[in-house]
């Protein structure tokens, strides 16, 4: 039964990664699409706390790093999403109380995650853009995630919460 629950979460992460590469390219703003995988990790952090979110972040990040058409150094998204999941999990008490705070948390997480990814790019000299351009990409990406969070977070929270009590019953 636990295997089935885990498989469901893996499937959700897969859908997020594929959707942002395949479906959202039609509505991208200068090529920037919403980071759905990051939203899923933040939702997991709100629902289950830092440890779970960090593990899920690692998995989602590795998928982002390895699934085509990714061509950057693998492990960069994994590192960014592990930290995002952990940090979001630490402040989840506020986000659980009000949906507004949850949306703000997604915005902050999106900023931290994309910035961390960009920073690792600068350190490794892997596909780094000029700073002004990088900031523009980060801002568009945060706006995208803020726009989708009010719709996605309640659904994801409902789903991930529902997976948990059943797991505890075993």
């Amino acid at each position: 039964m636990t295997g089935l629950k885990d498989a469901t979460l893996v499937a959700v992460v897969c859908v997020a990664v594929i959707a942002q590469a395949v479906v959202f390219r039609f509505v991208s703003v200068d090529g920037v699409v919403p980071n759905l995988a990051l939203v899923v990790v933040v939702a997991a952090a709100i629902s289950r706390g830092p440890q779970f979110a960090a593990v899920l972040g690692f998995g989602a990040g590795m998928l982002l790093d390895l699934a085509p058409p990714a061509d950057h150094v693998a492990g960069r998204w994994a590192l960014a999403l592990v930290l995002v999941g952990y940090l979001a999990g630490l402040v989840r008490q506020d986000a659980r109380k009000s949906p507004f705070m949850a949306v703000v948390l997604v915005g902050a997480a999106s900023f931290v995650g994309t910035s961390l990814f960009a920073l690792s790019g600068f350190v490794l000299d892997d596909g780094a853009l000029p700073v002004a351009e990088t900031l523009r990409v980060i801002v568009i990406s945060v706006l995208w995630d803020l726009m989708l969070a009010p719709f996605l977070i309640p659904v994801l929270l409902w789903g991930i919460d529902r997976l948990q009590p059943l797991r505890m019953a075993h």
Binding site: A21, G31, V32, N35, P69, A70, D71, F117, G127, A128
Partner: peptide, 15 residues
């Protein structure tokens, strides 16, 4: 073309 790498990955690739 079936998929586009997101620009926030700072590489320009497609599948």
């Amino acid at each position: 073309v079936i998929a586009m790498g997101p620009v926030q990955s700072f590489t320009r690739t497609v599948t």
